[in-house]
Simulated assay, not measured.
Amino acid sequence: MAKSELWHRGDAVRRELIGQAGLASMQGVYDDPMMEKFGDYAREAVFAQLWSRPGLDTKTRTLICLISDTATHAWPELAIHLRMARRAGWTEDELSEALLHLCGYIGLPAVREAMIVAKTLFADMRAESGGGAGE
């Protein structure tokens, strides 16, 4: 089935946000027909429409996603959104501090899990780029 213009617009936004390494880590997720429908919807409704709206910059939108993921314990999504946040310009230290700040609002157990996800993702991203710590 041919993809809509909205799908293509959303796919371009998604690729920009997630990057090649992030997309490679998701390989196979959307191969199933049920998941393909989900992916199509996400590209059109979320990436083409929500992420492209005026009023907030991409960097701010990624932080909102981190907070939402941590509050709702959406750990696989948190890894995706942490990658997007790093690509949008947040440093590891800034994101760690933002997560730590949530301790007073959503609790230590959720933030602990979020920090574990962040630690793993940050190490993966450093390995992908072949280098440096904490930025």
Rank of each mutant, 00 (worst) to 15 (best):
L6Y: 02
L6Q: 10
W7G: 00
H8S: 14
G10C: 06
R14M: 00
R15V: 01
R15A: 07
E16M: 04
E16W: 01
E16N: 04
L17N: 00
L17M: 11
L17T: 02
G19W: 00
Q20E: 09
G22C: 06
L23D: 08
A24W: 00
A24S: 13
G28W: 01
G28F: 02
V29W: 05
V29C: 03
Y30T: 08
M34S: 06
M34A: 13
E36S: 10
K37W: 05
D40G: 15
R43L: 01
V46M: 09
V46E: 00
F47E: 00
A48T: 03
L50T: 11
W51F: 09
R53K: 12
G55Q: 04
L56D: 13
L56I: 03
L56S: 07
D57E: 07
R61D: 02
L63F: 11
L63T: 06
C65Y: 02
C65H: 15
C65I: 02
S68D: 08
D69K: 08
T70K: 09
A71S: 14
A71P: 15
A71D: 03
T72W: 11
H73M: 10
A74V: 01
A74W: 05
A74K: 12
A74D: 09
A74P: 09
W75E: 04
P76I: 00
P76Y: 06
P76T: 02
L78S: 01
A79P: 07
I80Y: 07
H81A: 00
R83G: 04
A85N: 08
R86N: 13
A88K: 06
A88M: 05
G89M: 13
G89Y: 14
G89L: 09
T91G: 14
E92M: 04
E92V: 03
E94F: 05
L95A: 14
E97W: 08
E97C: 06
A98R: 11
L99A: 15
L99N: 07
L99K: 11
L100K: 13
H101N: 15
C103H: 13
G104I: 07
Y105W: 09
L108Q: 06
L108Y: 10
P109A: 01
V111A: 12
R112I: 08
R112Y: 09
R112H: 09
E113R: 08
E113T: 11
A114M: 07
M115G: 09
I116Q: 15
V117L: 06
V117E: 05
A118W: 00
A118P: 04
A118G: 10
K119G: 09
T120W: 04
T120P: 07
L121K: 02
L121T: 13
A123H: 15
R126H: 14
S129F: 03
S129A: 10
G130Y: 02
G130I: 09
G130E: 09
G131Y: 01
G131R: 10
G132V: 07
A133T: 12
A133P: 14
G134V: 00
